[in-house]
Design a protein around this nucleic acid. Sequence first.
DNA 1: CACGTTGTTCCTTTCACCGGAACGACGGCT
DNA 2: AGCCGTCGTTCCGGTGAAAGGAACAACGTG
Lengths: 258, 258
Amino acid sequence: MSIQEKVPLRGTQGGTDAADRVADVLLLLMDSPGPVRVSGVAAELGIAKSVAHRVLRSLVSRNLAEQAPGSSGYLLGPAAVALGAKAMSRSKLENAAAPLLRELRDRTQETTLLTRPVAGGRVHVAQFESPHHVRMTVELGAFRPWHAGASGKILLAFAEPEFRERAIAQEAEVYDLGEEAIAALKRDLEHARERGYVTSSGERNPDAGAVAAPVFVRGVAIAAVSVCGPRSRFTPAHAERIAPMLLNVTQRLSARLS
Amino acid sequence: MSIQEKVPLRGTQGGTDAADRVADVLLLLMDSPGPVRVSGVAAELGIAKSVAHRVLRSLVSRNLAEQAPGSSGYLLGPAAVALGAKAMSRSKLENAAAPLLRELRDRTQETTLLTRPVAGGRVHVAQFESPHHVRMTVELGAFRPWHAGASGKILLAFAEPEFRERAIAQEAEVYDLGEEAIAALKRDLEHARERGYVTSSGERNPDAGAVAAPVFVRGVAIAAVSVCGPRSRFTPAHAERIAPMLLNVTQRLSARLS
DNA sequence: CACGTTGTTCCTTTCACCGGAACGACGGCT
DNA sequence: AGCCGTCGTTCCGGTGAAAGGAACAACGTG
């Protein structure tokens, strides 16, 4: 255990010493079984007590650390729990989805995507690319609106009704959607809810088509899985052929996560 | 979700802006469902891209963040998982122990302690104080050697034999223990292993007495629970009366943690 | 082609922050 | 009682670490 061992000096690639120190303090709190003193942090990291104190105060202000009750020693705080839970939860969803999406990619020979809802829209968080030279690819992490694209629509279709109404209203405003477009969107969402999947053709990208279905955890749609490709291969009829395979995957993933 | 919402400006009490920024980047990674871009971090926190990049590089150098495969976006890294697990594990042991130690305190009217092993000794990590005006209290987080005190002895008694031999040898050297003291210590430890608890009187503090027993998880002693008080009340006979209550608590805690 | 955005690197300037010092509190020892 | 050492916390001055603007190559879109 590391209380009595010096933390090895580690450089940084492109970071700063000050930021390194914050990370090191967090890791020290992690390595210590009980409350850590300001003087202990200072000694371990070879910094002044006042520096150690300041870093700890910043961590406390963000709930990443806290002072142990009845002590002036510091411990990891509630936000550290949330951080770990998030890091684990991200791994859990993507780890569970990866083999299934890879298999779906292999069977369809088209690009498969995992997409998650964020405020105001969605984000693609994983992709498995088609082996074809001409294929559809997306930029992971980039924000996308709800209304254009299969995965956006499927997430919206299976969202809470109140949330859905609000999202449609906001998106109408931000993207200047007319009455006809809104009505068409609502019909699409109704249709999606009946079938459990949605197809799109040329909406986000005029050269692309897609089919998407939701992943549920305890009845809540937490992600979408989609298959997409260039319009030349991804005809509406092709999308309908792919749908059962897709639903099979989303059902297995949903079961695995519950 | 917070990608589209500005992170609220939060001051710090005694910290620094630079350290706050590191914490804020971590929390932003936590709040984002997918990879976060340098430019996204910069926009959210209202800092320059180069600053955001540097903080992220520092976090990556400590495995608190990583770049998503096939993307230049950043995610929480493996050390964040460990951090959360540690924060949770600390909560788990102390959360499980708290009601039992409180109950033991209430029944004995003496101070109860939770103590954990660290390199070279032990650390008190939680205490529930006696309601008496004259009572025993300890400083949480302060390092203590093995050989002086009931909880140190109980942890040593139930440690791996190899570890125990090494610890005794080291402690003999550091604290200049003579042959007689070592022999007496070994007899104490043998006695402790036979009975499952250990009593002490006046060893760490000439005015105090204590009785301690180990907490096991999967056959490994991971902590000690002890009851301690002033010698005037905490006679050896009194310690023997407390021992069954203490063993009851450690057994329930061990069961709860397994 | 032009334009916009991106992540990453470089360089100048400056002020945020490091670290030493001070201080009150506490505990141990004589 | 006094003295000493250690502690966490706060203060303050000097300076160099770091913020931030700029540059740049890469990429995507029209």
